[in-house]
Structures are given as C-alpha cells and as structure tokens.
Design a protein around this nucleic acid. Structure first.
Lengths: 163, 163
DNA sequence: GCACGATAGTTTCATTTGAAATCAAATCAA
DNA sequence: TTGATTTGATTTCAAATGAAACTATCGTGC
C-alpha cells in the first residue's frame, strides 16, 4: 500500500541506524537493572566503572574514558561525592587537576553493580554464538576507530581518508 | 600505577559499553554530515527516512519505527511541517490519527540525505570485511531482540527468560 | 442514544543537557 | 619577574527532554 520511494534507504540494513537502535535497547535494559536498585545514573555508573578499572583518574581523564562531556562528569561527580562513593583531591603536582578515587563504600557499590552488569551481559550474549561475540567486538572497535577518523578528516579540509 | 580493583570489569570487552561508545561515535559522525548541510536534526532525519521508506505513516507508527518518544515526534513534525518537508492530514476513518507524507520538497531532501548517508556508510563499512558486516547486522538484530525480551521479563515477575 | 474506558496526539512543566563563558592554575615569551 | 596563552574544571543559561496531564475522538456496553 504505502508508496515507498523506489530508491528508498533500507533502514533495517543501515548500520548507523541499527547500531543506534540496538545500543539504545541494550543501554536502557542494563541501566534499568542498576538505576532502580542503586539510584545510580548511566553517567555515574560509567564513572564508577572507569574508577574501578583504572584506580585514580582526573576529571578530564574520566570524561575521555567514559565519553561523557565535561559538565556531565562534573555533575555526576558531585552526586557521587555527596553520596560518599568517590573522594576528590586536588593534585599536588598540578593544582588545576582533581584526582578522583572510589571510597571503600564506592568500591563496594562498584563491585555489586559490576557483578550484576556482568551477569546481565552474560544473559544478553547467550543470544550469540562465541564466534559472533568475537566478530562483534572486533567490528565495533574497527567502526569506532573509522568513524572517529572520518569525523576528524571531515572538519579538516587538508587531510583525506585513505582509500 | 593506578590501583585497579583485582576483579575489575573489563570495559573494553563489555558489550553494552562498547555498543554505546561505537553507536555514539557513528551517530555523531553521520549526523554531522547532514545537520550542518541541511539543518536537519537526528530525530527529523529518522522521520524523513521512515517516510521515505514506508510512504504514509501516522505519528504513532513513526514513533514506533524510529524509536522516538511521542513528544519528540510531535516536535520534529512541527519543524518539518514549518519547513514544508512533510504534510499532515487527519485520517478520514479515525480522526484522532494524522497521516504524514513527504512533500515533493521533502522527497528531494530525503533523497539527497539518503545518498549522502549511504556513501558515508560505505566509507564506514570499508573498515570491515564482507563477512564481518553480515555477522554484525545479524548480531545486532539478535541482541536487540534479546535486550527487549529481558526488559519485558524484568518488569513482569511471572515471565522468565528461556534458558 | 449515553456513560465508560481506551487510544492518538499534543501540551505542560520540572529536569537535564551541553555549548560557551568563566575561573583558576600552569606554562610560555619577552 | 610580568603579561599573554593554554589548559583543567566548573558554572551559566538557553534549549532540549520526557513523564505525566490533557484534549479529542473512538469503540463498547447498557
């Protein structure tokens, strides 16, 4: 019935669209698990996760690792600080920087959520074969790198993407 | 140096995180291409794309197809309407529904962006082998379905995910 | 018919967002 | 030094967001 354009874009095979949809569904599904149980937002969880993984980080490093913008990091840290899950200390060497670490309580919460997140992921990945999981992760890495590279060269008229 | 927790979650292998990061990079990269050139937002493009693909759709169907919430659809439609890229008509059969179609100009813009988007995707996918592309799309589909299913059964204590 | 609840779409409003401005400290140049 | 510039982090503020309330219409039972 509905008169689609002859040369219409096949959205169901269009990778940017499919990525956005799946990432959204997965993100909402997982965050629901810890948001209502711990009152932790996605941004807050990303920060906890990176602190759990890397130990000490500055606010800027956190922004980079967790791909959050600076104001989001500042605000998430304020909430985490007020709940005593992280502690902040201006760096001796460069007093513009703030070193962030998990408190004991922060580590406890991190570990609880990490366990939950991991078992949620296990259930999710049960939908895939082992091979598919490997290819998926590798493909995501390649696409990520390529997308960033394309964005860079986009703004910069001198540089070109290699063929 | 940085004292990571012994049992830390390996973020670089954690699928929900990797999906979010890659989807974000790809989405930003692509939208930059049409946002500055056409002044079309992501939500607006999704609507154009679905109209281009399906011809006529109600606002509700658009929301479902494009995974946007209702207010977002309403507002995106207002902007598209004011730019005369879509036309609205209340349905004869059920006068609560509004049938949306692309105008001639809307079709033109749709086709232009679709062409751009497709060539952008081609450049992106050059990072992957043909096999990887296939596996990626299939995996995304499976993950999407599974994530939705897990979210449903989460809220509903009776249902359980099959093993 | 007329009340009832359900559904499509819009609007409201308190919250969230993020680009740009700001502040503070470090680094560079003269 | 001292002024100019850059960099890390925070704050501001206008715009976007989305849950809930609302409006309009539909279908159903009485």
């Amino acid at each position: 019935m509905s008169s689609a354009l002859s040369s219409a874009l096949a959205l169901d095979k269009f990778v940017p669209y499919r990525l956005a949809v799946t990432a959204g569904a997965v993100s909402r599904g997982l965050s629901a698990v810890y948001e209502d149980r711990f009152g932790i937002s996605i941004a807050e969880w990303r920060i906890l996760a990176n602190l759990g993984r890397f130990g000490v980080l500055t606010a800027g490093a956190l922004a980079e690792h967790s791909t959050l913008d600076k104001p989001k990091v500042t605000r998430a840290l304020q909430r985490l600080k007020s709940r005593r899950l992280v502690s902040r200390k201006t760096c001796r060497a460069d007093r513009r920087e703030v070193a962030i670490t998990l408190t004991i309580e922060g580590e406890r919460v991190y570990r609880e959520i990490a366990t939950l997140a991991q078992s949620w992921e296990t259930q999710l990945l049960a939908a895939l074969t082992v091979t598919e999981r490997g290819v998926l992760l590798r493909a995501l890495g390649k696409l990520d790198a390529r997308a960033l590279r394309m964005s860079e060269t986009q703004d910069n008229p001198v540089a070109r993407v290699a063929p």
